[in-house]
Design a protein around this nucleic acid. Structure first.
Length: 464
RNA sequence: GUCCCCAUCGUCUAGAGGCCUAGGACACCUGGUUUUCAUCCAGGCAACAGGGGUUCGACUCCCCUUGGGGACACCA
């Protein structure tokens, strides 16, 4: 049987890091087994679903390169399918109408919480042998509940957590259609996973409790029960649950924050999954290696340092042209326009080694295209009255120096020797004059890339 | 409260009863390379939550405790 997995977000917000990992694992599993990956939008909560959120999710997946083979399917467009199965369930007695009002249910729940018992539907409208149902209220639009088996247990072998067994008396009769007739999540998933031929349901940990009900419904429907793999959640760096006000940011935020999708993918792939001691692997390698057997069942904390480290790796190894396109955009964001000279690729070759973030990289090289504003302390510290004459002589010599790193290095070396100075004594003021700060790659190389004219101009502005 | 899940260095993890004197990676510390910073290289610090079993032998299996997380909606 060909593997079919799915990612089924509800469009009520952006694609966050946890959702992205679920999508990645689902996607990779399909790729690994040469199967299909289905994208399904669970939008039956009309009040909270928005087209913007759909777009945000698609954007996030596109950025990560998680393409789907089928879909996106929208549940709101599949009402006929749900309706049909709803009727079948009603006809077979596996579902029934419940006329309990919301207020009634709320009161019941409140009482149960107060009594310290598990909140659960009391089964008032559940048809049972020999039971006389209450009079049907005329003013209530009934919901439809699934008639969950009363006895026995439901069990499945979770591909991540192992065997899980839940007794049916823990499960209440879940509402599968609202008063207005629209089916609810628990029913739509069941129908969709079945009709879409999903073979492995890979989803978040938070669905473990829904699984037994869904299996019961699948059985009532006479459907095939897929395999389930429940991924544990990703915690914030402080060990706390990721929430909207606490670190649950959109994956697109990582783009904005200067991360390469390759780095995020590699990081997410290694979070909760492992392949021996391997740490750095690209997406192709990940797809080849990926399996459900090596997923950690416990929750994992997000660690930005490690992401940064991977980001540095991927920046170093990025295609230079791709990198320059990205950095050029970020430079625009900083108000800096990249010019033909110096060629940005040369600049990047000089600087990419030392960056672990694209925004930082852009900021670091901005001085190649705009005159940097030097920190006053740095100027005072390095461009001293004693060194200025040395710089002036050097500037003069530089005018006729052939513009290679070697030649420039010799000029600096000569200045160092003639004035009996240490190398940094000369290199530092040069850095401040040219880059605005005292840290840079080899100063001779910086000068080569910067170009003779710019170097002379910037030096001159300090030596007036 | 009830049910379910989880538990190895600070963090991500390897580990499927003897290979474990518990391995790798990030972070951190030290040293080296370097023209500063960074990179890079070498080394170091650092963990099996606790208690019972099972076994000739438990990080690995079972139970309890503790701790953490999740679920309990006419949300998904």
């Amino acid at each position: 049987m060909t593997v079919r997995t799915r990612f089924a977000p509800s469009p009520t917000g952006f694609l966050h890091i946890g959702g992205a990992r679920t999508a990645l694992f689902s996607w990779a599993y399909a790729k690994k087994h040469k199967g299909q990956f289905v994208l399904r939008i669970e939008d039956t909560d009309v009040a909270r679903s928005t087209p913007e959120a759909v777009q945000a999710i698609m954007d996030g997946m596109a950025w990560l390169g998680l393409d789907h083979d089928e879909g996106p399917f929208y549940q709101m467009q599949r009402m006929k399918n749900y309706q049909q199965h709803l009727e079948a369930l009603l006809a077979s007695g596996d579902a029934y109408y419940c006329y309990s009002s919301k207020a009634e249910l709320d009161a019941l729940r409140e009482q149960q919480v107060k009594d310290g018992v598990k909140p659960k539907y009391d089964g008032k409208w559940r048809p049972e042998a020999g039971k006389v149902l209450p009079e049907t209220p005329a003013d209530i639009k009934p919901v439809i509940r699934f008639n969950n088996p009363k006895d026995g247990t439901v069990a499945w072998d979770d591909l991540v957590k192992g065997r899980i067994e839940i007794s049916n008396n823990e499960l209440d009769d879940v509402i599968i259609a609202r008063g207005d007739g629209t089916p609810t999540y628990n029913f739509c998933v069941v129908v969709d996973d079945w009709e879409m031929g999903i073979t492995q349901v890979i989803r978040g940990d938070d669905h473990v409790n829904n699984t037994p009900r869904q299996i019961n419904m699948l059985n009532a429907l006479g459907a095939t029960v897929p395999q389930y793999a429940h991924l544990s959640m990703i915690l914030g760096s402080d060990g706390q649950k990721l929430s909207k006000r606490h670190g649950a940011v959109s994956v697109m935020q990582y783009h904005e924050d200067g991360y390469l999708p390759e780095a995020v993918l590699n990081y997410l792939g290694r979070l909760g999954w492992s392949h021996g001691d391997d740490e750095v692997f690209d997406i192709q390698q990940f797809c080849e290696w990926f399996d459900l057997d090596h997923i950690t069942p416990s929750a994992a904390q997000f660690n930005t340092e490690k992401l940064n480290w991977l980001n540095a790796h991927y920046i170093k190894n990025a295609d230079l042209n791709d990198l320059s396109v990205d950095i050029t955009k970020r430079l625009v964001g900083l108000g800096v326009t990249v010019q033909a000279e110096p060629p940005i690729n040369n600049v990047l070759e000089l600087y990419r080694e030392r960056a672990n973030n694209l925004n930082q990289l852009a900021a670091d090289i901005a001085y190649f295209y705009s005159v940097p504003e030097a920190n006053a302390n740095e100027v005072e510290k390095h461009i001293t009255a004693e060194i200025k004459p040395v710089m002036a002589v050097m500037a003069e010599t530089l005018k006729s120096t052939s513009w290679t790193a070697e030649a420039i290095h010799e000029v600096i070396a000569a200045a160092v020797k003639e004035n009996a100075l240490k190398f940094p004594k000369v290199a530092m003021p040069l850095r401040v004059m040219l880059a605005g700060i005292a840290q840079s790659p080899s100063i001779d190389q910086v000068m080569v890339v910067l170009g003779k004219e710019t170097v002379l101009n910037r030096m001159a502005s300090y030596l007036k």
